[in-house]
Design a protein around this nucleic acid. Structure first.
Lengths: 272, 272
DNA sequence: GGGTATTTGTCCGTATGTATT
DNA sequence: AAATACATACGGACAAATACC
């Protein structure tokens, strides 16, 4: 154990939190009170609190105090669906297994024509700088920001006749079904790559994350393949790690009986 | 943009880093130099550096300086293998697609008899407190800590004849193959749940992570099901998020041609 | 709405400790 | 042993956000 003051204080507070002595969503003593309790300076107490913050145990609210964070029941996304997913609701082809009545809503896609950068060109098997169509959406669950999603398609698909990719703000039957019906392009499989990184400024704002990099985000790259084994779409989805989890089913698995924990809590909800 | 001094300084440094003006693995100006450059106090400069640290852009080394972090090429783990995985090498049943010559090594399992806690009992469909066998392993790639893995089996499997679960330190043909041959229990599928959380003290030490909670860990729960649709194993695997990534293949996907980036770097290697 | 007390956020200066070269 | 650079700890001052009257 370190003899360093602010770590000792943080350790002591951590124990009190995890033992339940200080309950969820309740307030810690103020910095002045802690300063007296531990006979340390206010800055040292603040260093201890900062440590607990990066560890995700507490949060501070200016003008109010320091509070033990409330765990929110996570959104569950199943990454293994049908390979030929004709899931039907526009670009939302990832199936969601969530608690009862949770329902995702989605903004209309923002459609752009772009030069493909390295990552996109790489995944789609194109040369860097090739023109691609991007369709960007914000997704919410019960009104709270859930995910940012951008799909990239080679411009050649539009040339081949799928012109609604760049026209229609929304494609009700789903892009996969549309491409199959319109130009005979079928999705036979996809590959997901899941990584974690710090959020950028846009993501921090949209998800209302703390503006230091404490809460990381999942970055899911989904590359879809057609009947010839060629990639024809890259979808990049971003999810905050503090309220999301993924499920992957392989082989024969029973349906998930979702024993919903009673302690289901309202979305944390900084009053701000 | 905020008029807050330490955020301005952090922003300015971030731009210089991301524009490449300060290259990877090179040193930033010292705190004293930054103090003069920005005409701020040393503490304010340090606040800026702390912000860049939680965002994972720089790292500090006492006695040396502040350095731009070097991204390390990630270990890639494929979560979708064969449902009846008889993968052959003991408890390592997750297939690894990694750069050339990377090879995992594994410690002998530490075998324990435990009372199942909530999570384990839940996943295995047992009552809380039921006896289970746990087999814990540390896994390395090229000698660097890669993953911590613990598998839980109901004690009833041992009663049914699979006594090497509690005896043998290692089961060369793999636990799945052993259970099939010994007691006719076949794995027909599994379900993975992937979450991210802050590391605990053990994990921080084993992975040699910074001792604040900056670097989170993946927590992968794999529940394996037998031919009757009953869960018979829970495996919990921990991976640091800063050097791991997961791949999920669904449907028909081409083999991955791993265009290894030339910039492959040695493991970051805090000299500590 | 306004004013005030409370609480955290920012910024400064200084001193001393610890790790590395 | 000495110099350098970051880490810890203290104290003080003022700003900003919030709650309450």
């Amino acid at each position: 154990m370190p003899e360093i003051r602010y770590r000792q204080i943080a350790e002591d507070l951590r124990k009190k939190i995890e033992s339940g002595e200080i309950d969820h969503d309740t307030q810690l003593p103020t910095e002045m009170e802690l300063r007296e309790q531990y006979d340390a300076s206010r800055n040292t107490v603040r260093d201890a609190i900062k440590l607990l913050m990066t560890r995700g145990l507490v949060e501070t609210r200016p003008g109010q105090g320091t509070f033990v964070v409330t765990k929110i029941s996570p959104y569950v996304t199943v990454l293994t669906g049908e390979a030929d997913a004709s899931a039907g609701q526009g670009d939302i082809y990832m199936q969601e297994v969530t608690a009862s009545r949770r329902r995702p809503t989605t903004t209309d896609p923002r459609v752009e024509i772009q030069k493909s950068v390295g990552t996109v060109a790489d995944a789609l098997g194109l040369d860097k700088g090739t023109t691609v169509v991007s369709r960007h959406q914000q997704r919410f669950i019960d009104g709270t920001p859930w995910s940012l999603q951008t799909s990239f398609y080679p411009m050649t698909l539009v040339v081949r006749g799928a012109d609604r990719l760049i026209q229609a703000p929304d494609i009700p039957e789903g892009v996969v079904a549309y491409l199959r019906n319109e130009i005979g392009l079928a999705q036979v499989g996809y590959r997901d790559k899941v990584t974690v990184r710090a959020p950028d400024a846009n993501e921090t704002a949209f998800f209302r994350l703390p503006d230091d990099g404490r809460v990381a985000v999942f970055e899911v790259f989904r590359t879809a393949f057609d009947q010839d084994g060629h990639p024809f779409r890259l979808t990049v989805s971003i999810y905050p790690t503090d309220r999301n989890q993924f499920t992957i089913n392989v082989g024969k698995v029973p349906d998930e009986l979702r024993h919903q924990q009673e302690s289901a809590e309202i979305q944390s909800g900084h009053p701000g």
